[in-house]
Amino acid sequence: MNLVSQYFENSYEIKAKTLNTLVIENTEHFANFLRTLIEVSNKESEEIELIDDYKKIDISKTTDIIFDLFNIEANAAPILKKLYTELEEDLCSEDMYIKKLEMESAVANIVDELTYRSRFSLKSDEINYQNFFKALSVEFDYEKTSILDRLIEYIKVSSELLNKKLFIIVNLDSFLTEEDIVELSKFLCYNEIRVLALQNKITRQVRTCEHLRIIDQDLCEI
């Protein structure tokens, strides 16, 4: 996967199974690149392209730009909607279908009795399983985990349920310790998920396997 832009002399390869770090030291250049990247993700510009296997990828659909690790949420509505759809499909599997029918019958009997007992004229419909799972508060259980654990969980579920191919994290080093980055790198080693750390500067030690490119103050690429 390659990131192609007028901001680079050469396209930047974003590799799987490692942490990709792109440092743009010139503050104005960094801000302009980030602004353009956001515009591309909102389909307001085409100045940055993502190419995979010689094909252009829709950044707005396949890329997640993360600015604040404190506010990432695996239990966000779009993710839960996909999860509920998957759970509903599983209800129709061979080993769950009979249980599904039994539950629907029991619920229908209760609703019929409540409808009969009510002083109002009521009617009911089939179970809406999106609303059913929401009413039961079915969600990912990760409330007490660290920032790193929340990030890894978010990346995992977003890639699997929303089909996100690339996660761009702005100033990752501001949120994670060097030990956290080592653990994140270990996670990436066993997955095909691509993560790009977009930095304005880097002061920590760079890991041997880290895929690093630096665009310095004079816009020279190292």
Results as ranks from 00 to 15, higher is better:
Gln6Gly: 08
Tyr7Trp: 07
Glu9Arg: 08
Asn10Leu: 03
Tyr12Val: 06
Lys17Leu: 06
Leu19Glu: 00
Leu19Ala: 02
Thr21Ser: 07
Val23Asn: 02
Val23Lys: 05
Ile24Pro: 01
Ile24Cys: 00
Ile24Gly: 00
Asn26Lys: 14
Thr27Pro: 04
Glu28Gln: 14
Glu28Arg: 11
Asn32Met: 05
Phe33Val: 01
Phe33Ser: 02
Phe33Met: 02
Arg35His: 09
Ile38Arg: 14
Glu39Ile: 01
Val40Trp: 03
Ser41Val: 11
Asn42Glu: 11
Glu46Ala: 09
Glu46Ser: 14
Glu47Thr: 06
Leu50Lys: 02
Ile51Thr: 02
Asp52Met: 10
Asp52Gly: 10
Asp53Tyr: 09
Asp53Thr: 07
Tyr54Thr: 10
Lys55Cys: 08
Asp58Phe: 11
Ile59Ala: 13
Asp68Ala: 11
Phe70Lys: 14
Asn71Lys: 14
Glu73Phe: 05
Pro78Cys: 09
Lys82Gly: 02
Leu83Thr: 06
Tyr84Val: 09
Glu86Lys: 12
Leu87Asn: 03
Glu88Asp: 08
Glu89Asn: 15
Leu91Tyr: 05
Glu94Met: 04
Tyr97Gly: 02
Ile98Met: 11
Ile98Leu: 12
Lys99Thr: 10
Lys100Phe: 05
Val107Glu: 01
Ala108Met: 12
Val111Ser: 05
Asp112Arg: 14
Leu114Ile: 06
Arg119Glu: 02
Arg119Tyr: 02
Ser121Ala: 06
Lys123Glu: 07
Ser124His: 11
Tyr129Met: 04
Asn131Phe: 11
Asn131Trp: 04
Phe132Tyr: 13
Phe132Trp: 10
Ala135Thr: 09
Ala135Gly: 08
Val138Ala: 03
Val138Asp: 00
Asp141Ala: 13
Glu143Lys: 12
Glu143Val: 09
Glu143Pro: 00
Leu148His: 03
Leu148Val: 09
Ile152Val: 14
Glu153Phe: 01
Tyr154Met: 04
Val157Ala: 05
Asn163Ala: 14
Lys164Ile: 08
Leu166Phe: 05
Phe167Thr: 09
Ile168Thr: 08
Asn171Ile: 02
Leu172Thr: 13
Leu172Arg: 05
Phe175Cys: 09
Thr177Ser: 15
Glu183Ile: 10
Leu184Tyr: 06
Leu184Glu: 04
Phe187Met: 11
Tyr190Gln: 12
Asn191Ser: 15
Glu192Lys: 15
Ile193His: 06
Ile193Cys: 10
Ala197Cys: 07
Asn200Ala: 07
Ile202Val: 12
Thr203Lys: 13
Arg207Asn: 14
Thr208Asp: 10
Arg213Pro: 01
Ile214Lys: 12
Asp216Arg: 05
Asp218Gln: 13
Asp218Met: 08
Ile222Thr: 13
